[in-house]
Amino acid sequence: MDAVIENLPTYWRGFSMTLLLLGVSGISALVLGTIIAAMRISPVASLRAFATVYTELVRNTPLTLVLFFCAIVLPYLGSDLEYETAAMIGLSVYTSPFVAEALRSGINGVPVGQAEAARSVGFGFGQTVGLIVMPQAFRMTIPPLINVFIALTKNTSVAGGFFVFELFASARELANANGDAVIAILLAAATLYLVITVPLGIFAGQLERKWVVQR
């Protein structure tokens, strides 16, 4: 326990890097995922095809491989990114298809009758999407989106294996330095992860329950 308290600054350094990774890659994955989802439902066939292929490929590539590409293969190909930036890019790219799928499933989850009803009372495309479909789709999208962010939080730990000093890397370093208190050190790191993931999970669960009441 003493080892944990002594090394709190190291934990904090790692934890703040984890939060930074989570924030930056979360937001850019959201943007990228929205673009992919929009391409996926667009009337332009080639955009649809591109988005489908992108989703399939990225979803079936392990995150380790994506980060390996960003951190080691890209510099070898001649980029000079910082490891942190490389990890953020990798995490955003890896998370974006999951965001896109969550958004798309939300839009698909709105019963067709809703859109039909809107159309039959004379709403145009903008009104149907903006007033009827989107508000419902948005609400249904939030719980799966939060689950995506929970997964992202856990995935940031992989960046620790690629020269980014975040929570996992700090835990590994501390565990190597304090061989006699490995359990306490690793449990402390686990607690810090749980501090992010558990509240998010509870929040998602509550939203889900609300959503059930409405249907």
Binding site: I150, N155, S157, V158, L186, A189, A190, Y193, L194, T197
Partner: peptide, 14 residues
């Protein structure tokens, strides 16, 4: 809940 909220990598290291 505990296991689901933890990164697999940390579990491996543990």
């Amino acid at each position: 809940e505990f296991v689901r909220g933890m990164p697999v990598l940390l579990m491996m290291l543990f």
